[in-house]
Design a protein around this nucleic acid. Structure first.
Lengths: 192, 192
DNA sequence: ACCTGAACACCGTTCAAGT
DNA sequence: ACCTGAACACCGTTCAAGT
């Protein structure tokens, strides 16, 4: 960084960086949809040749993983409240972050990136604090995340074009799932 | 069909048809994954030029919709039993059918195809028979389908490579969701 | 170290024929 | 009616330079 002071500011269009590439990629995905994201188009948006991107990301999959990573990492940690309130808050955040541009379907691939791991840790912590034994907390989190990811896909479907209807649909199922989890917390099953 | 008897059987490699194309496409997706399905490769597998396929499907999306349509249509209708047993059976079938080759993420697009509509009708019928009012049945089905679709994605993730573990994970969340729905059936909420 | 060019091996799809 | 060819406008990515 800055090994010799540039003669003039803005002489070069700002050096490339993971950060700058991810910002541009996100913008492109949000504006034109995930199908329109190509390395070539992204490079063009950054006024750079396509191959320049490969110095920062191994390939397109790595770039998409990084987008999901950052989106998940940006989900706000829940505030004070009961475990149900906290879980609701966390998953609403996740749904909003992953819904943009069909990122949900890429979650499985990116499960082990820092951002997604942090999100999962947050979810697990809520469940542990609620009293779920470790193993059941893991299963409960998996169920909640699966439901949320599934909802980002089916929720953008044609019959639920209405955003608030989609939200209400998500909340209905989430409350039922939380009800079921709460019941299992009160009277644990003998097995499983 | 057969406007003049062919001089010899197997003189021509069997005429193209939607059925034959779909069979080949399914085989390709199951064997090599959905990313490997291209119109060109599919045409090659059928020993035909790429453009021949376009006489049977408007474009690649239409072909993929048809694959999902047929997969959903092939899900066995549930047998006798309680509504929970029937729903379990239906969704296990759906999960198996959609899990093959990442078809789940294409469900939203194909929501209005006959096969997926039939599947939804089956699910709604179970819920209506269980006593859910029409509107709540629709929401419950949406939740159950979202969870199932989400599970086909997250279930194939790295940490759950073990199939039986993935199945157990799916069942855990499904039972919790069914518990929650059953509870709502017994004591309906004032609103929602 | 970082970016450029050209090239390779693919895509989906249009359009104008062939039979 | 059904399939062929060639072509167009794209892809992701490798490789060998340039500065």
């Amino acid at each position: 960084m800055g090994r010799a002071s540039a003669k003039k500011e803005a002489e070069r269009p700002a050096a490339l960086s993971r950060e700058r590439i991810l910002d541009a990629a996100r913008k492109l995905v949000e504006r034109e949809g995930p199908d329109r994201l190509s390395m070539r188009r992204l490079a063009q948006a950054l006024d750079v040749w396509p191959m320049a991107l490969y110095r920062y990301f191994e390939d397109k999959d790595a770039l998409l993983d990084a987008i999901v990573d950052r989106a998940a990492g940006d989900v706000a940690p829940p505030g004070e409240g009961t475990w149900r309130e906290q879980m609701r808050e966390l998953l609403h955040g996740a749904r909003a972050a992953l819904g943009r541009g069909g990122l949900g379907e890429r979650i499985p691939r990116a499960m082990l990136t820092p951002g997604v791991l942090r999100l999962s840790e947050e979810g697990l912590a809520i469940l542990r604090a609620a009293g779920f034994p470790e193993e059941e907390a893991a299963r409960a989190w998996h169920a909640l995340l699966s439901y949320t990811v599934g909802s980002t896909l089916t929720g953008s479907s044609s019959e639920l074009a209405d955003v608030s209807a989609a939200d209400a649909g998500f909340d209905y199922g989430l409350e039922r799932l939380l009800d079921g989890l709460a019941a299992s917390l009160e009277s644990p099953a003998v097995t499983s």
